[in-house]
Design a binder for these strands. Structure first.
Lengths: 363, 363
DNA sequence: AAGCAGCGGGAATGCGCTTTCCCGTTCTGC
DNA sequence: GCAGAACGGGAAAGCGCATTCCCGCTGCTT
């Protein structure tokens, strides 16, 4: 028993398909109430479900929003995805998901797939990469996006404009002030920390990471401090952990435990900035596994303010980002002319226990 | 400049649309190599992207997999979503996302929308509800699903068969042994805990929650203990927090802090089972906010083993569930006959610090 | 009373693609 | 050497729907 079609409904109702179509979708022309009723009843009794593909073909629009993320299980992306989903619902559209692990080639493929499905708009949430190995991929991605836009598609990008895209029409970006916020974080930390600063960064060339690093260094400079060491590693928990292991070695044996050959005087406490929360958590875990304690033996701060991590102890100092709102803003307005351009969001430096200056004293 | 069509490609290549179609999609009949080359070149130069809607319409299949979750930002669901996404990729299909907050009405609507898009299969990940207020909604959902299956759709359900669905063809469920695992958890905990047991459960009628509660009680009974108190609350962090506040009051002032009117002898330590990790975290936060410490003043265990929470301290005792695998298994096999039936996964009780018996003694 | 606007309904066309059917050609087998 | 098979290509018929155009009708104007 195949799904019933509009024609069947029309036949059952004793009207033409045209009329049936008119009553079942709010067309401009509304047939008489009696007929409408008949059609609706027929549709109901047949369990009629319009074929969205056919509708899309005829109207050339699909009610689809494409969403591209690196990894949907990453809390950063899933928070954004929630926002996108919310916005989609308001436009009553559905969201098509693609995960790409950040590979420009995969992203290009995803854009093409979305274009093939005639998605009304595309949201790209992942951080862009500027590595030379990705250069070609980025160019192709940009070309694909441009073509999509030229064909009337709308695209919203989180964070950074896609490298090399010629923002025609219908191309807008949600600007996240990563650099400014990181600078602010650095300044606030600098005010209360005497020790050295270290940055745990993502792979070089990952724009979001680079921005945050740059901002943090600038903030340090603003405070009259010299630049922090930068450790490049994976942009995830594992990366943070590995960097944490290295830093633990650098910090040395914690005071109080009877290590051999420890210096007599405690060195000034290290202050670690991990470019995202998940990395910060990983680093903290590594430190802990080496017998070090946060914030006693090292202060640590992250970025993003991931909700799931909010109950983590010591409470993680971080920069709050309105992730869900970012997701909402990233989806292009359904109706109306394409508002090309950029909207901004603001974050907030949120200092918590993990960078408490009193850390040295506390248990 | 509208997207170019197959016909344009064909014209440019000097062949018929039929031939062009045959070369651009692996049809059974492959045209001659010279012609194929010509067509491919034409397609390339035009930047041809096939219109998936039209293809779908013609082939009546869409390459879409519908995924229904309560909330994509919930780490439980996003982990499953990752698995689904992986499986989809292997079938090279795309996933369509719908979030419903667990409302059967919304789920029904989502299924209808998926059906309208002619999704090849649907995965329902959220826990089913058996509340009487949802009864009608559930029935409608079941009916919608049945219809979808009858029309050749495949559906995969995580956890529980949809109440009232008549498993025709193409309906399969990934069985999660919630009850057994909860029982096992209870038995293991019972072996080392002298104090009372309390369960923080989700809303009554939420099947996953009910199963876990039932299993835990059974495990307690197996160990010769009387049933635990059950607190029903929200199935999320907030619910856990609220329950935690109440339990904190029940536990009373922690030993050592100078509360007035504390009993002289420490009462046996409470052992709390929250039916999922996120709730357990919420409860822990509540306890902590009341000055209580885990596991010293209360032991606590969760369920799911959410990855993002793995660095939480005290490390949360829980039941590990292979969430990603569950997601993968939930998506119906793309090709081949619909393997109706059920596949099972196994979890593993994972005891960690939060229920350590030595908790009373440790700092 | 005749003419015209306006409306409710149907016939027909096309969206872009797949696929069946058909036809002309070349290759095979006896 | 010729019948028939096998093959390579094109014409055309949909897939299910929206929509334009058209037609007969009612109700109004002058």
């Amino acid at each position: 028993m195949a799904a019933s079609t509009l024609t069947e409904v029309a036949r059952l109702a004793g009207v033409s398909p045209a009329t049936a179509s008119r009553v079942l979708n709010g067309s401009a022309r509304t047939p008489g109430p009696d007929i409408a009723e008949r059609v609706r009843k027929a549709a109901d009794s047949l369990g009629y479900i319009p074929n969205a593909q056919a509708q899309g073909l005829a109207k050339s629009s699909s009610g689809l929003i494409g969403l591209i993320v690196h990894d949907i299980a990453d809390p950063y992306f899933s928070a954004i995805a929630r926002g996108v989903q919310t916005a989609a619902r308001h436009q009553n559209k559905m969201v098509l998901l693609a995960t790409t692990a950040g590979s420009p080639a995969d992203e290009r493929a995803a854009v093409a797939a979305f274009a093939a499905r005639r998605a009304d708009s595309i949201v790209i949430a992942g951080s862009r990469s500027a590595r030379t190995t990705d250069q070609q991929g980025n160019a192709e991605l940009a070309a694909e996006l441009d073509r999509y836009c030229r064909n009337g598609g709308q695209v919203g990008v989180v964070g950074h404009a896609v490298v090399g895209a010629e923002a025609d029409e219908g191309y807008h970006v949600v600007e996240v002030p990563n650099e400014e916020l990181a600078a602010e974080l650095a300044r606030e930390l600098a005010a209360s920390h005497a020790g050295q600063f270290v940055i745990i960064a993502g792979p070089e060339g990952l724009l979001t990471s680079d921005d945050r690093v740059r901002g943090f260094q600038r903030g340090l400079a603003d405070a009259g401090l010299s630049p922090a060491d930068v450790l490049h590693t994976g942009f995830d928990r594992t990366g943070g952990y590995e960097a944490g292991v290295e830093l633990a070695a650098r910090i040395g044996t914690p005071n109080g435990s009877g290590g051999a050959g420890t210096e007599a005087a405690a060195p000034p406490r290290l202050c670690i900035f991990a470019v995202n929360d998940v990395m910060a958590i990983g680093a903290t875990a590594a430190l802990r596994s080496k017998g070090l304690r946060v914030p006693r033996d090292a202060a640590i701060a992250g970025f993003d303010d991931i909700e799931t991590l909010r109950d983590f102890r010591p409470a993680l100092s971080t920069v709050h980002l309105p992730l869900e709102e970012i997701g909402r803003l990233a989806v292009p307005a359904g109706s109306g002319h394409a508002a090309a351009g950029a909207v901004g969001v603001t974050g907030e430096v949120t200092l918590r226990r993990s960078t408490e200056p009193g850390g040295e004293a506390a248990s």
